[in-house]
Design a protein around this nucleic acid. Sequence first.
DNA 1: TTGGAATGTCAACAAGACTGACATATTATT
DNA 2: AATAATATGTCAGTCTTGTTGACATTCCAA
Lengths: 165, 165
Amino acid sequence: MANSQRTGESPLYLSDEQLRQGIEAMFFAYRGFTSDPDRILATMAYGRAHHRAIHFIARSPGTTVNNLLNILGVTKQSLNRVLRTLIQDGLVESRQGSVDRRERRLTLTEEGHALEQQLSNAQRARMRTAYEAVGPESVAGFRRVLEAMMDPEMRHKYHAIKESE
Amino acid sequence: MANSQRTGESPLYLSDEQLRQGIEAMFFAYRGFTSDPDRILATMAYGRAHHRAIHFIARSPGTTVNNLLNILGVTKQSLNRVLRTLIQDGLVESRQGSVDRRERRLTLTEEGHALEQQLSNAQRARMRTAYEAVGPESVAGFRRVLEAMMDPEMRHKYHAIKESE
DNA sequence: TTGGAATGTCAACAAGACTGACATATTATT
DNA sequence: AATAATATGTCAGTCTTGTTGACATTCCAA
């Protein structure tokens, strides 16, 4: 069962040790990935959950609560708490849908956009530095592996967001 | 400042849109990355924090609490709560250090190893499937980008663990 | 012997996830 | 027109995992 017992049959890059290193790289890299926005958010009363909501509202202006729930994969109670504070603080605007008036269409206010820019600038800066350091071929590989790691439903959502832009 | 305003100067793969897609890919992929262990852990009274502790104890048997604190980047109180339950449940053994008896040397018990295997098998299976789907060149690029994304201290720890194996 | 380091523990707290129950509009179906 | 389903919001309670701050113990080293 364990790959290390049949190294003759499968290539080195699929060995348990290589996979384990990939797992640890993912762990440490994700820490770096979130650290810059986290630092900014910590100075306000916000956390990672607020960042995620802001990001995807910025990405798909006019999105509904339900759509956001699907993308973020949390409960409506959890999301609602975050949205409530963002709306109260004037970062997010919630308008009744014109076609289906049960829906709430979410958009960022000017203030919300300002924070979104601040957060994504920080996150992109790290990403850009990493991309520049390794070059386009490595970046292409990076993107391919990440996509292959996603659950199929997540992959669909990922593509849907990409293509709607 | 925003890269989208000087697309003529910098390559496409460093555009804000490409960086944004990388950020979202990272977000969705990390969800997949943690989902299999999370599912297993949810059936017991454990969470991701327990998984992380178990992983790095398995990786560096006889490691100290302090070393684990450095790797995991949490407070000792937080780690201690997790370790306490793991020790009580007989998954982790804590022995007084022989050289410096203030230290606690942490190892997995047989039961601990069994759980670690279950968790890492699940996580490696996803990793292996992804790796197989994209091939060794993409994997190499993936690893390069992840490493470039880490904070320098994290990169050191990552290498230290790799090389001690 | 004294100071500092490593560890453990107690208490209190907060973010952010969860479940379950229930309310209110609105739309769709019968 | 009545009923069912959908979208959203809210209240209450729980859990995990993180945080601070305070304090005790043990042990090494100057």
